[in-house]
């Protein structure tokens, strides 16, 4: 058994390895190489060292550092709003109220709508509301920021809610019963029993919210397009604008994309480690 496994190992692994290489490894390595090159067409590049990275960070028209700050702020606020609201909804919808299933469905539906559609729909809604005050989403970066938060939360809450519901339903009933018998009040039950036991759900939800908010593109493009004057431009949109909107900026655009990849990777790893250590075995 062991022997034949060893013998046929290449035959089994090769197709997957080939697919993985073509679809992921090769483009990835090419991407990194290109970030150190001056190019317009990906197959025709000249090496130019760290030029692209320097321009991405220091050129005043690059807007990368601003976009990074804006994205970070957006991500932090999103994690808070999405997770708290999703958890509250999950608590509400695990109490056996009438119509629970209907409400779960209703809250989940926004997640099935594409980001571009959602962005345009909310653009119309929010502008219609703001027009009562002779304002638009484009009036200031603040309005754009909160508009993005609303759209992002609206879309992600349903998904996170489902994960929290699964987590809450997994808590053994006898634990809660024991707590009740010992005289724990509702708050104590929430903080001592429920929260520690849904920690795995919190891990996965924070992780998903963090990376999804950090990588947000569609909603940003459709809702504000980065306006007014690039003040609501997030990282992904900034990379897109750099790469396709400017002549001679393909290299720095690629460099930004590599930095973006590294940032998402590092943040996600750190976050995963922190929340893992808080998990409780049940």
């Amino acid at each position: 058994m062991q022997k034949s496994l060893t013998k046929y190992f290449p035959a089994f692994v090769l197709p997957t390895l080939a697919a993985f290489s073509i679809a992921f490894l090769v483009p990835f390595v090419m991407g990194i190489v290109l970030s150190f090159s001056d190019f317009t067409i990906v197959t025709d590049a000249r090496f130019n060292g760290f030029d692209n990275y320097v321009r991405a960070f220091t050129d005043p028209s690059s807007n990368f550092v601003y976009a990074l700050g804006f994205t970070a702020l957006f991500t932090v606020v999103s994690i808070i709003t999405v997770n708290i609201l999703a958890f509250l909804l999950a608590m509400l919808l695990t109490r056996g109220l009438k119509g629970t299933n209907l409400f779960r469905g209703v809250f989940f539906v926004p997640n099935l709508i594409g980001g571009i559609v959602l962005g345009y729909v909310w653009n119309t809604i929010l502008n219609a509301i703001l027009s009562n005050f002779d304002l638009t989403l484009m009036y200031s970066a603040n309005l754009g920021f909160w508009g993005l938060i609303i759209v992002n939360s609206w879309q992600m809450i349903g998904y996170m809610m489902i994960i929290y519901i699964a987590g809450i339903q997994n808590i053994p009933g006898d634990l809660k019963e024991a707590a009740a018998i010992d005289g724990a009040n509702k708050r104590q039950t929430l903080f001592r029993i429920t929260l520690p036991l849904v920690m795995p759900s919190i891990t996965i939800c924070t992780f998903l919210t963090l990376t999804n908010s950090f990588k947000l593109f569609d909603q940003n493009l459709a809702l504000t397009g980065g306006g007014p004057s690039n003040m609501t431009e997030m990282l992904a949109l900034n990379i897109y604008h750099t790469f396709y909107g400017r002549n001679g900026w393909s290299g720095p655009g690629q460099a930004k994309a590599v930095v973006f990849f590294a940032l998402v990777g590092v943040i996600a790893l750190i976050q995963l480690r922190i929340t893992r250590s808080k998990e409780v075995e049940n």
Partner: peptide, 26 residues
Amino acid sequence: KMKRFAAITATLLLLCGLLAACGGGS
């Protein structure tokens, strides 16, 4: 041995991919 084989295959595949990609332009 298995590890080495896997590494070599991966490297070869990578090179093939790069060559093919570069060849397309010229």
